[in-house]
Every structure is written in structure tokens, then in C-alpha cells.
Simulated assay, not measured.
Amino acid sequence: MSFTPNEIALLLVALLAGLVLGLMMSGRGKYKRLWREEQSAHHHAIRDRDARLNAANERIAELERQSAPIGPGTATAVAGGVHGRDDLSRINGISQTQEVALNEAGYHRYGQIAALNGEQEATLEARLGLKPGTIAHEDWRGQAHDLERGEKPGLLSRLTGQA
């Protein structure tokens, strides 16, 4: 099989055109450059994250040095002070769900419970699904008054009726 000079010239032109098109399509290292840029951005993000974590840990350590030790009941007092509410579930006879219902009814402080009158007691008993006279029987007002003064209501004081 022999080629004519015209066929050889056409073959060379086709090979040169393929070479030129191949070089144009290769991007001349474009993907390698993009990969390096992505790696650099990743390392930068990792350094930023570590710097933020270190700053946060330093701030936590500083706050721990400044604060007093936490004793029993402190978390409840802080939570009540932040939200403007007392922990009404500390009153014997009030469950967590009843405390939520009391908060929804507008009772957030021990003083509000201590200041209840008979009509308000009856309304609350109906709202909470309690038997009539339950609030008076369990002495919610007395317990709330003690808690408002900072006293812990004790079993003996509730049984004997003495302060």
C-alpha cells in the first residue's frame, strides 16, 4: 500500500490539527492549579476554625476564673433570674406540667402564688384539673411565701402548721 504525496500532506495536517486541539483542551495545568487553590482554601478554613476554638476556650477559662463556685440550687436561681421566673415546681404538689400551665396563666413568681385569693385558687384548680380545695390543702400559698423569703419548706413545718 502506497500513499500519494497529497494523502501524506492531509494526514500531517490532521495530526497537527489534533495536536493543537489537544493542547487547547488540556488547560495547561488548569486542574492542578484549581486543586492547589482548593487545598489552600481548606487549610485556611482549618486554621480559622482552630483559632476560633482557641479563642472560645480562652474566654471560657477567663469566665470560669471570674465566677464563684456553683453550689446547690444556684442553677435554678440563675435560670429564674434570667427568665424572670421562679421554679414553681419546688412547691410540693406542683408538677412540671402544672408549672407550665401556671406560667401560661401568668403566674411566674412565688409572690404571685402566695398572694392568691379564694377565687383565684378555684380558677387555678379548675384550669389544672385539681379537686376543689387542693391548693389550700397542700398549702401552696404558705410554701410559696416560705420560698419567696428564701426558706426551704420543710415537712415538719407543713405537718405542724408552724413557721
Rank of each mutant, 00 (worst) to 15 (best):
L11T: 04
K32L: 15
L16C: 14
R36T: 10
L16A: 15
L23W: 06
A17L: 11
I8W: 00
A9F: 03
F3I: 11
A51S: 03
N6A: 15
R49L: 13
S2Q: 05
S2G: 12
F3D: 08
H43S: 15
L23G: 13
D48R: 11
K30I: 10
E7I: 02
A45V: 07
L34Y: 02
L19C: 12
V20N: 00
D48G: 14
A17D: 07
R28P: 06
M24F: 11
S26D: 08
H42K: 11
S26E: 04
W35E: 08
Y31M: 13
D50E: 09
G29A: 04
N6V: 14
A9P: 08
L16D: 09
R49Y: 06
V20S: 03
P5Q: 00
R36A: 14
L34A: 10
I46A: 06
S40Q: 13
E38D: 06
V13W: 02
A9C: 08
G27D: 00
W35V: 15
N6Q: 10
E38M: 10
P5F: 00
F3A: 13
L16W: 01
M24T: 14
D48A: 15
E38T: 15
G18N: 09
K32H: 09
T4F: 01
M1T: 11
M25H: 08
L34R: 02
M24Q: 10
R28G: 14
S26K: 01
R36L: 15
V13G: 10
S40E: 07
L21Y: 03
F3L: 13
Y31H: 07
A14L: 08
S26R: 02
G22E: 02
D48V: 15
Y31W: 08
V13Y: 01
R47K: 07
G29F: 01
L11Y: 00
E7Y: 00
G22Q: 03
G29K: 00
H43D: 15
P5K: 00
R33W: 03
M24D: 05
A17E: 06
G29I: 05
R52T: 06
V13D: 06
M24Y: 03
L23Y: 02
M24S: 09
L15M: 11
G27V: 04
L19H: 05
R47A: 15
E37S: 07
I46G: 03
S40K: 12
H44L: 14
R36C: 10
V20L: 07
L15Y: 03
A14H: 00
G22H: 03
V13M: 10
E38C: 13
F3R: 04
L12Y: 01
Y31T: 14
A41L: 13
M25Y: 04
L21R: 03
L23I: 11
D50M: 12
R28D: 08
L12N: 04
L23S: 08
R36M: 07
E7S: 02
R49G: 10
M25F: 10
G29P: 10
E7P: 04
R47Q: 06
T4C: 02
R33E: 05
G18S: 11
M25E: 06
H44D: 12
A17Q: 04
G22P: 13
V20P: 09
